[in-house]
Structure formats: structure tokens, C-alpha cells
């Protein structure tokens, strides 16, 4: 069993096939998209493969330590930041092939014109616990 993170990007992924900003969709198309995402998560819970899913606000703040006794420095958001995460889903599946299959299904979520977005999703394996028997 292996856990994978499915990352959805606002920015930083290659362009989707059906690449129309959401604000240009009809309200019904937006509803259909949201329903698809919800159904997908529900279905994965039913197959025993769902771990977690969250969406993130596009605007974030960069924070760093600024030395003893000083408050942290904040900065941003930076318009030029290349990579912007929109949300994630964590799945627990029996193989890499299964993870790819599920990411493919999620990428088929409907967008403008009710057609699949064909959006690029990033698939990242979790680092696991070390196995006991190695030699």
C-alpha cells in the first residue's frame, strides 16, 4: 500500500487541454465540476482509498525568521511565483499504476462546455516508514 499526493495547481503545471478560466464557465458547468470532485472523493472513500482532500486559497503569505527577539518577516503574495497549489487529495492505493489511473479520472473533471478539462495533476509518492527486513 502506498500513499500519493495528487496536487492541483493554479499555476505552474502545463496548460490543460480545455483551458478556460472558471469565471468564464456557466454556473451549471461550475456546479457539474464541483459535483464531479465530490463524487470522486465519495467513490474513493467507498473503495477504501481516500485519505484526505483540501482546497487552498490562492493568496498566501511568505514568512521567515528574522533573528532573536524580532517578529517574523512576512512578504508576498508574489505575482511572479511560478508554482501555485490549488488543492490536494491524498490517496492510499495498492500500486503506482492505480494512482495514475485515479489521477487520470480526476483530471477528467468537466469544465467549459461540459467537456473534460484534461488538467495536469502532479502525482507525488509519500515517503513511507522504513521496512524492517532489508537484507
Amino acid at each position: 500500500m502506498a500513499k500519493y499526493l495528487l496536487l492541483k495547481h493554479y499555476r505552474g503545471a502545463p496548460a490543460a487541454v480545455n483551458d478556460v478560466p472558471m469565471a468564464q464557465w456557466t454556473p451549471e458547468e461550475i456546479s457539474a465540476h464541483m459535483q464531479y470532485m465530490q463524487d470522486f472523493a465519495d467513490r474513493l472513500e467507498g473503495t477504501g482509498e481516500f485519505v484526505d482532500g483540501q482546497a487552498l486559497a490562492p493568496e498566501g503569505t511568505f514568512v521567515r525568521y528574522d533573528g532573536e527577539g524580532r517578529p517574523p518577516v512576512t512578504d508576498g503574495p508574489f505575482a511572479e511565483t511560478k508554482d501555485l497549489i490549488a488543492g490536494w487529495m491524498v490517496i492510499d492505493v495498492h500500486s503506482y499504476e492505480r494512482a495514475v489511473e485515479l489521477a487520470g479520472e480526476l483530471s477528467a473533471a468537466p469544465g467549459a462546455g461540459g467537456k473534460p478539462i484534461h488538467e495536469w495533476l502532479e502525482l507525488r509518492p509519500f515517503l513511507t516508514a522504513p521496512p524492517t527486513i532489508t537484507e
Binding site: 472513500e45 485519505v51 484526505d52
Partner: peptide, 15 residues
């Protein structure tokens, strides 16, 4: 033990 939600594990077992 396997770091998944209880609902997911319950479904895995009943399936």
C-alpha cells in the same frame, strides 16, 4: 496503524 481515516478503513474491510 495505516494512517488512513476510520471511514476509509471500514469501507476497505467491508469491500
Amino acid at each position: 496503524a495505516y494512517l488512513v481515516p476510520e471511514a476509509t478503513m471500514a469501507q476497505r474491510i467491508s469491500r
